[in-house]
Design a protein around this nucleic acid. Structure first.
Lengths: 154, 154
DNA sequence: TGTGAAATCTGCCAAGA
DNA sequence: TCTTGGCAGATTTCACA
């Protein structure tokens, strides 16, 4: 039992399906739907958590209610000798940066930005991002409408 | 009370901060930290839910434990006369597609893909995505490592 | 908006088949 | 790995300040 492939049976899948849909689903409610006791569900959950398969739970906020309407992806080109970690550190300080990836291909770094509107995006790029030392150029793709948003299926 | 800007006071922010960090934080625990009664927290939560500010809660699965290690962003070029909705419908049937956006700029559609490895990604692109009628060409950016992953701050 | 109290439901542990 | 039993604590509602 040193290294292990995790094998999920139907019950595990049902538990995960319920909790990935709504993290506050009562365990006893799942137990009723699945047909085993709450304590058993609880034991399985502890197993799943130990296996790192579940990495947490979150309330999902709706950005539009806060007035955040412009989602954009920005590819970043760096100078050759730039220390990427410094760039990432600078990007972390910008709250609008939701994701940041080191990438292959055209760009060195690729980020996802959430802004109030296009003007806010432009302002961010011009005054906060393109001014970071080491960043040469950026290329933006603006999302007009998001059609799919989900996790891996189980 | 027809249209309303939502004003969050310090208590609302503490509630949201606790629940966006861990959706299963007990309400009474938040109540203790904030210094008001559990019933009051409950009332505020109902208000926040009604305002659509909270759009749900989710358990976060760890894709790496399932063997999913390659995250990629793919820009898609469509033929001019293509009905985008048909394309999106086809993309929805591919479980590896986690996000899908209509976009401005170079691409017509932009997606986020989660695959087992690079071979799986290539296979997906060649056999499932580029074969969708209307798709002319795709351009991929592969994430080597994700450094930031978060929601909007409150 | 807040509180406190009451009724009900959950979370979680232990012991055992 | 399941079940039962049980208690502490959580959720939820309500009348009232």
């Amino acid at each position: 039992m040193k290294s292990k492939t995790i094998i999920l049976d139907g019950i595990d899948k049902k538990i995960l399906k319920a909790l990935t849909a709504d993290a506050r689903t009562p365990i006893l409610e799942i137990a009723r739907n699945v047909g085993i006791s709450g304590a058993a569900i609880h034991q399985r959950l502890r197993k799943l958590e130990k296996s790192k398969l579940i990495s947490g739970s979150k309330f999902i906020l709706n950005p539009k209610v806060f007035g955040y309407n412009t989602l954009a992806f920005v590819g970043i080109y760096l100078e050759h000798a730039t220390n990427s970690e410094t760039i990432v550190k600078a990007l972390k300080r910008i709250p609008e940066v939701l994701e940041c990836h080191y990438t292959t291909g055209h760009y060195n770094i690729f980020i996802k930005l959430l802004c109030i509107d296009n003007a806010h995006l432009m302002h961010l790029l011009n005054t906060k991002i393109q001014t970071i030392p080491g960043i040469i150029r950026t290329e933006s793709v603006i999302s007009l409408d998001q059609q799919i948003d989900r996790q891996i299926q189980i």
